[in-house]
Design a protein around this nucleic acid. Structure first.
Length: 216
DNA sequence: GCGACAG
DNA sequence: ATCTTGTCGC
């Protein structure tokens, strides 16, 4: 799995990003998902705790949760987040008894310096459709979206549309939705909005986030 | 050299 | 990410 693909230093991490970035595929999502998972991680005293929460897409019904705890092996460096949480996040996803059709990540997809943020990185490794949902910007240019819920503007980076800045709640700071792997922008917007109940962050990610701290 | 900088 | 109470606004 991730034996030769988990680096200890930055130069090694860069090589992995260069290799994996070529494998990211931005193509139309084949079918709307029936099952969707949100994954997030928390850090505490040298440990990474990752949680994967599975939901039924239509109706947003919770189905199951899985988690994993591992030693921190990499520091947090902007642009290299996946090397800090990736290993644990993958383990949590693989512990789900039922496999999701698509995964939501707390971070960027291709809206990344090297075009391979955590959503794209893990999407490629697992070869599964994925979407990045970050609370703030890493790279890219954009116009502020209108104040109404559902409004969005494109996020551009290197003359490419890498995602959108999406207002999930009226008059509340927008989130940065970016293409992960095997998805397109229209599907990403539709899927993320469908997962929003009454808060800014999509439910699968909110649950994974709160559970990951609870497990600490 | 300076500022920016997912979690 | 994490440290942390009350408080302003819809």
């Amino acid at each position: 799995m991730g034996m030769n693909s988990w680096p200890t230093d930055i130069s090694e991490a860069r090589q992995i990003q260069d290799a994996l970035s070529k494998q990211v595929k931005i193509i139309p999502l084949k079918k709307m998902p029936e099952l969707i998972a949100g994954v997030d991680a928390s850090i505490d005293s040298g440990k990474v705790t990752a949680v994967a929460s599975l939901y039924e897409y239509s109706g947003l019904r919770h189905i199951e949760d899985a988690f994993s705890v591992k030693e921190v092996r990499f520091p947090y460096i902007p642009g290299f987040l996946s090397f800090r949480e990736g290993e644990t996040v993958i383990d949590a996803i693989e512990k789900l008894r039922i496999k999701p059709d698509i995964i939501l990540f707390d971070g960027q997809g291709i809206a990344h310096t090297k075009g391979i943020g955590i959503a794209s990185h893990i999407g490629v490794i697992l070869d599964m459709p994925s979407i990045g949902c970050a609370k703030s910007r890493l790279v890219g240019r954009f116009k502020e979206p209108a104040a109404e819920k559902g409004s969005w503007t494109y996020l551009y980076h290197n003359d490419r549309r890498v995602g959108v800045v999406l207002r999930t709640r009226s008059s509340v700071k927008p989130i940065f939705v970016s293409l992960g792997h095997r998805v397109d922008i229209d599907s990403s917007i539709k899927i993320v909005m469908k997962c929003v109940y009454k808060y800014r962050i999509p439910e699968p990610l909110r649950r994974a986030d709160s559970l990951s701290r609870e497990i600490l």
